[in-house]
Design a protein around this nucleic acid. Structure first.
Length: 103
DNA sequence: CTCTTGACCGACG
DNA sequence: CCGTCGGCCAAGA
């Protein structure tokens, strides 16, 4: 059973094109709340039943850091680098330019 | 229903 | 830049 809340999160994740990233906060905003909702967003993605289907590795924290990843943050960085995103010191380079705004 | 935990965010010092 | 505090969403026990 998939909650409506999770459906929204997954839908927004799928919206993000390759080579771009989004933040938990942006997703939360698109749903209607901010900050606090982002915690629930991460929580939902953590249990992500669509792990290989949803590009959840394109979702990062608001300050451009990687944040966390169920399979390990290093794995996430590797995937992002493969898509052409440069990462340094656990932070995304040109994060603002890489940030894809949902809305 | 109550309590805890979490892949978070923003503000303050 | 880094540590700390408040916030009050969602899901599981």
């Amino acid at each position: 059973m998939i909650a409506n809340f999770q459906e929204k999160v997954y839908s927004l994740c799928k919206r993000v094109p390759e080579g771009k990233v989004t933040t938990y906060g942006e997703i939360a905003k698109s749903i209607g709340k901010t900050g606090l909702l982002s915690r629930a967003v991460g929580n939902a993605l953590n249990k992500n039943p669509y792990a290989p289907v949803i590009p959840c590795h394109r979702v990062v924290k608001s300050d451009g850091s990687i944040g966390g990843f169920a399979s390990g943050s290093r794995k996430k960085i590797n995937l992002l680098r493969k898509e052409g995103i440069s990462i340094k010191n656990n932070k995304i380079i040109d994060f603002k330019k890489r940030l894809y705004r949902l809305k």
